[in-house]
């Protein structure tokens, strides 16, 4: 049994090598990570920006240039270059005329939160484009909100005109059964994806109720140079 006890003694190493090894590895790892982070950061940011612009182009067809606006705490929209805070993006055509504002909205979908981007034309007070940024809706069913053509047609000119005192929109965006759309503020649902299509309409309704008055009231911010 003597050799057993010897092994036992041998099994217990001194603490210093453990400390040394751990800290050494830790520092080395930290260095490696930071270097990678610093190295890839510019490219990642550029890619992200490109992706965002692409999305804006989709919801505001014909956009050539964009500007980012920040909603300040005082409910004022100001142009900004940072990517922090509550943002909207204005799109302009080649001649610098305002095409519309791209607004992000999100809400509970069927499976998880859906994030969308939509284009809003403050002049016509209509929604003119729509794009799903992120959704985990059931493939083949809920994800029709991204592909279904007749559904997307809803958002070519969805009426969200404001009421007289510009405090809110006149007619709420209402989801209806597929093919039952009668008024320009109604959204045709998708057969078999009722919940997801309803969710989009609801997200949009909630979002535009908030943003519509804000943007129209400060419309000149976007056109002012």
């Amino acid at each position: 049994m003597t050799d057993t006890s010897q092994t036992q003694v041998l099994e217990r190493p001194k603490s210093t090598p453990m400390l040394k090894a751990m800290v050494g590895i830790g520092i080395a790892c930290g260095l490696l990570i930071v270097m990678t982070y610093e190295g890839t950061l510019p490219r990642i940011e550029r890619l992200k920006k490109e992706a965002l612009e692409q999305a804006i182009f989709r919801v505001l067809p014909g956009t050539v240039t964009t500007k980012t606006f920040l909603l300040s705490d005082a409910q004022k929209l100001e142009e900004t270059t940072s990517d922090e805070g509550t943002l909207v993006y204005a799109g302009y055509d080649g001649s610098g005329d305002l095409l519309g504002i791209a607004i992000e909205g999100s809400g509970q979908g069927y499976a998880d939160i859906i994030r969308i981007l939509y284009g809003y034309n403050p002049n016509t007070e209509k929604i003119i484009g729509f794009y799903v940024l992120e959704s985990k809706e059931t493939p083949g069913l809920g994800d029709k909100i991204e592909k279904d053509e007749s559904f997307l047609e809803n958002f070519v000119a969805l009426d969200v005109s404001l009421n007289g005192d510009l405090s809110t929109i006149q007619n709420e965006v209402v989801p209806v059964k597929a093919g039952a759309k009668e008024n320009p503020w109604e959204v045709d649902g998708i057969t078999g994806a009722t919940i997801s299509s309803r969710a989009i309409a609801n997200i949009m309704n909630e979002s535009i109720q908030y943003w519509g008055p804000l943007i129209v009231q400060q419309k000149e911010e976007f056109t002012a140079d």
């Binding site: 790892c29 490696l32 990570i33 982070y37 890839t40 490219r43 890619l47 992200k48 992706a51």
Partner: peptide, 20 residues
Amino acid sequence: LIIATFVTITDYAIQAISVE
């Protein structure tokens, strides 16, 4: 530690390749 480091590196590398 070692694995996590390389995963972080990979993570950034993939972001740099394609955000999508």
